[in-house]
Amino acid sequence: MPRSDTVPPQADPAAAQAIAWAVRLRSGEAGEAERAAFRAWRQADPRHEAAAARLEQSLGLFDSLPGEAAARSGLRRALLAPANRRRMLRDTLGLLLLGAGSGALVHRQMPVNDLFADLHTGTGERRRYTLADGSQLWLNARSAADLAFDASQRRLQLRSGELIVEVARDPARPFVVETAEGSVRALGTRFLVRQEAGSTLVAVLHSRVALEPQAAAGSVLAEGASARFDRRAVYPESQAPRGIAAWEDGFIEVHDRPLADVIAALRPYRSGVLRVAPEAAGLRVTGTFPLDDSERTLAALAEALPIAVRRRTDYWVWIEAR
């Protein structure tokens, strides 16, 4: 297992894991092996037991789990529905726990699917790993990745979020980061990869990388450059790599970027909903803002821009033009 140094999240991840188990065990697909694994997880740590007990007390989710042949058909249909329906169920579980005063995390604290990744972080958490080959890996908040290292290759699948990797030299085993749109192959030591909706952002901090979209010819990206690619093409990106990678030190650093980009960078550091109205999203922002004090960042933006920060609760915040 890789070693890690962690910036602690703002809440206990055991609650999110308990939600993940609830969804999994009530899906109608769980067999005895998974139920045994849940029992082992629950007994492994007092925090796991406490999180599961809160779910039982508030929602009765574990104390009457359906048998293998008798799962509730309505819940099974919800879980087998499209992904957005499954996300709704998981979000609902989290919100119900919050309403019951359990202090549990909602789905946005740590996406439930990502709990089963080899490496993952929750809301407000940055983590550094030392991989088996000696490479150093940094995961931004709400990020997840899987490892596939063997005698001939070093492959890392970025499920979600963002990473920086400093690659240990090993000419016999290429180091490749795979995303939904293609892959990034190390030709040097240090680079950043971000999984976005429909595209991958890459920034080279040292040496070079090869960008390999799934359905297009590859290209080489040099130190000090950044680019975005989808399945069919590579597009130059104007952002400086050092600014893109500022989250490693706990900051958002932007120069003449839309407010929407700043808010997108801030979301993994806040529980709940953070939205920006279309008429405010395009406002241009230049500056450096702290990630670990999102309230301070929102206050600074409200002071510098013609925007208003509105709140329904601390977990439901939206930004609109003044």
Rank of each mutant, 00 (worst) to 15 (best):
residue 135 S to H: 02
residue 221 L to G: 02
residue 69 A to I: 01
residue 101 G to N: 13
residue 207 S to W: 02
residue 314 D to A: 14
residue 253 E to V: 09
residue 210 A to K: 11
residue 226 S to W: 01
residue 113 N to A: 15
residue 206 H to K: 10
residue 219 S to T: 15
residue 25 L to Q: 07
residue 101 G to R: 10
residue 53 A to K: 10
residue 1 M to V: 06
residue 211 L to K: 10
residue 22 A to G: 09
residue 263 I to G: 05
residue 294 S to T: 15
residue 45 D to A: 08
residue 160 S to K: 01
residue 206 H to P: 00
residue 117 A to G: 10
residue 139 L to Y: 06
residue 165 V to G: 02
residue 246 A to V: 08
residue 163 L to H: 03
residue 319 I to D: 06
residue 180 A to T: 12
residue 59 L to P: 00
residue 187 L to F: 06
residue 83 A to Y: 03
residue 6 T to N: 09
residue 319 I to N: 05
residue 264 A to V: 05
residue 225 A to N: 11
residue 242 R to H: 09
residue 212 E to A: 13
residue 151 A to W: 02
residue 125 E to Q: 14
residue 157 Q to H: 14
residue 300 A to S: 12
residue 234 V to T: 13
residue 241 P to Q: 13
residue 229 F to C: 05
residue 53 A to Y: 04
residue 67 G to D: 12
residue 40 A to W: 03
residue 237 E to I: 00
residue 215 A to N: 12
residue 107 H to R: 15
residue 10 Q to G: 11
residue 274 L to W: 06
residue 138 W to A: 14
residue 113 N to H: 11
residue 108 R to G: 05
residue 249 D to L: 10
residue 155 R to I: 05
residue 60 G to A: 07
residue 263 I to Q: 04
residue 28 G to V: 12
residue 34 E to A: 14
residue 115 L to E: 09
residue 98 L to D: 13
residue 82 P to L: 08
residue 89 L to S: 01
residue 207 S to Y: 00
residue 198 G to L: 07
residue 237 E to M: 04
residue 241 P to C: 12
residue 211 L to Y: 05
residue 303 E to D: 15
residue 317 V to Y: 02
residue 154 R to V: 04
residue 293 D to L: 03
residue 239 Q to S: 13
residue 85 R to E: 14
residue 182 G to P: 02
residue 36 A to E: 15
residue 311 R to T: 01
residue 88 M to W: 13
residue 151 A to S: 10
residue 170 D to Y: 06
residue 114 D to Y: 04
residue 77 R to Y: 04
residue 63 D to W: 00
residue 155 R to F: 01
residue 74 G to L: 07
residue 165 V to I: 15
residue 110 M to N: 08
residue 211 L to W: 08
residue 60 G to D: 09
residue 304 A to E: 02
residue 143 S to I: 05
residue 124 G to Y: 09
residue 210 A to S: 13
residue 115 L to Y: 08
residue 123 T to I: 06
residue 306 P to V: 05
residue 248 E to P: 01
residue 111 P to Q: 04
residue 300 A to I: 00
residue 119 L to F: 05
residue 312 R to M: 07
residue 18 A to C: 08
residue 17 Q to C: 07
residue 216 A to K: 04
residue 14 A to Q: 06
residue 98 L to F: 04
